[in-house]
Structure formats: structure tokens, C-alpha cells
């Protein structure tokens, strides 16, 4: 039988609808900002991701919030990207994270530094997400990339990302197949606002033996929706959602409703769980889940 190290993996294997959340590390050394997010999420999600300097902006590193969260009783999913670390740093970081109690790692390629506030930085990308996945499995199996044996391997579960709305989709699905072959045990997707994307995702990945958690994030305003459409790859937002936002007299309530409907749709399409990115609406996560009726 497969060994299980984390509550998150245990939940997925149990067949229970599993909800993961997300914590955004602050720009500065503000521990309280992490604690605040954890307080809101803790009762509602099994585990929460900690991002790794998304778009390459400099913020608190991934490990510190992971450790703070776990001290407060919320399990962490450590996001590791290939943007800033070569194979030496990546392996070393994961080994250290495991020693500090991290049990889930999400292997991502990472955004190009040109996208962020340090565009002059040297991009690393020594490995890619498929190769990082394979390296993580090898570490867990007790060997580093140099073939040296590890007496105390990192006991981690390995997750990967997926962009379900990109066009053409076939190369993205092929890449997911490679990630599964490389050792991926779960996948979380980019934001989805369109049920058609959910439907297509469930069809195109039906042949794959991996739990996929579609990513859902509340839409807080028309402005945010337009920004996402223009700047985030693979996003589609149906006309009726735009109308709901336009006609809304209480944007917070509308955002909660839209998220709740999407969460319900995720379950309807038979996905084993959902990845909820609160994007600042941490205090309302409980309400989104309650209104969705998935639990």
C-alpha cells in the first residue's frame, strides 16, 4: 500500500471532496499577515498553498509562511518554482523544508522574471516542472540527482499545476501526462470561471489517474475580470458572470455567490476537490463553501 504522509493526501485518497486554499506571503516581514490569513482559512480547508514569488515580485519566501501555518495547525502545500533556483538549490530547499515538517510540494515552472518588479534578474530555469516533479520523486525514493543515497528521504507528496483554458490544449495535456509519469500525485489548476472549461477539462483528463483540483477564485469586480481577461493566459469569463458583476449592488455578496456556484459546478463535474484562491477575500471563504453546498 502507498504510504501517506499528509492530511491533504489522506483526504484525497479517502474520496472526500477536498478543499485546498492559498496563502499569499506579504511583501515584508509581517508574520501577523500570514497568521491572519491562516485564521480565516484554517476551519475551511484541509491544506493551503504558499506561493513562490508569483510573477517574480519579491515577497516573503515560501518556507517561512509554510512553517508559521503549520505551527498554527494548517497544513502547507509548498510551491516550488524553477525560476530562481538551479537543481542544487531546489533539492536543498526541499530537503530542508521536509526537515521542518513540510509534507506537500507543488512543482511549477514559475513566471519569467520579466513579468515582475525585478525584470533585470537572471532567469534560472535549470529544470522545468516535469523534471522537478521527477527529481522530487527521486528524492522521496531516497536518492538525489547525483545518485547519492539519502538515509532520511523527504517524505513529501508531489503536486503539479495545469492551465486548463489555454489554446491549443493538447500540448498542455501531454505535459500533464508527462508529469503523471514523472511522479505527480495531484494537480491544481489556474483559475477557472467558465463551466465549459471545467467540462472540457474533465473530458480531456478522464484517461489520467490523478486527482485534479480546479482552481476557483472570487471575481471581485468588473475591473478585475477585465484585467484577468487581458493579462492572464487561458482565462475565459462568460457573459452572464460579467452581467452579474455589472448589475451587482453588493460586490462582496456577488463575488461569494459566483465562487459558490463555481465550487458547486466543480463537484458536479466529478472532480475530487477544489483549489480555492481567496485573492484577499479570506474572511469569506467559509461562506463561499457553505453556499456551494458541497459539504
Amino acid at each position: 500500500m502507498k504510504e501517506v504522509y499528509s492530511n491533504f493526501m489522506r483526504s484525497l485518497l479517502s474520496g472526500k471532496f477536498t478543499i485546498s486554499g492559498e496563502v499569499d506571503p506579504p511583501r515584508d516581514a509581517n508574520r501577523a499577515a500570514v497568521e491572519e490569513q491562516v485564521r480565516h482559512l484554517k476551519e475551511h480547508v484541509v491544506a493551503a498553498n504558499v506561493t513562490d514569488n508569483p510573477i517574480g515580485d519579491v515577497i516573503m519566501n515560501t518556507l517561512a509562511p509554510c512553517v508559521i501555518m503549520q505551527e498554527l495547525g494548517l497544513e502547507a502545500i509548498y510551491q516550488a518554482t524553477c525560476r530562481d533556483r538551479n537543481r542544487i538549490a531546489l533539492q536543498s530547499d526541499i530537503i530542508g523544508a521536509a526537515a521542518l515538517g513540510i509534507k506537500n510540494v507543488l512543482a511549477l515552472t514559475g513566471d519569467h522574471p520579466k513579468m515582475g518588479n525585478h525584470p533585470q534578474a537572471k532567469p534560472v530555469f535549470d529544470l522545468d516542472s516535469v523534471l522537478l516533479t521527477r527529481v522530487l520523486r527521486r528524492l522521496r525514493e531516497g536518492e538525489n540527482m547525483a545518485g547519492e543515497k539519502l538515509e532520511h528521504p523527504p517524505r513529501i507528496h508531489i503536486g503539479v499545476g495545469l492551465s486548463p483554458g489555454v489554446e491549443p490544449l493538447e500540448p498542455e495535456i501531454i505535459k500533464l501526462e508527462k508529469k503523471v509519469e514523472a511522479g505527480a500525485e495531484f494537480a491544481q489548476t489556474q483559475c477557472i470561471y467558465d463551466e465549459k472549461v471545467l467540462e472540457r477539462l474533465s473530458e480531456e483528463t478522464a484517461h489520467l489517474d490523478i486527482p485534479i483540483l480546479p482552481g476557483i477564485a472570487p471575481l471581485r469586480s468588473v475591473g478585475m475580470a477585465k484585467f484577468m481577461l487581458a493579462n492572464v493566459p487561458g482565462i475565459s469569463i462568460p457573459e452572464e458572470l460579467m452581467k452579474k458583476l455589472e448589475n451587482s449592488s453588493n460586490l462582496t455578496e456577488t463575488a461569494i455567490d459566483i465562487a459558490a456556484e463555481l465550487i458547486a459546478a466543480v463537484k458536479d463535474y466529478g472532480f475530487p476537490g477544489v483549489h480555492l484562491m481567496p485573492v484577499g477575500m479570506d474572511a469569506h471563504v467559509g461562506e463561499m463553501i457553505a453556499r456551494s453546498g458541497v459539504r
Binding site: 515552472t109 498542455e172 501531454i174 505535459k175
Partner: peptide, 11 residues
């Protein structure tokens, strides 16, 4: 990103 294994999510 000089990737070896297919497109990233940034397309």
C-alpha cells in the same frame, strides 16, 4: 525559459 518538456502556463 529554455524549457525541455513543453509549454509553460504562460502561453
Amino acid at each position: 525559459k529554455s524549457l525541455m518538456n513543453g509549454p509553460c502556463g504562460g502561453v
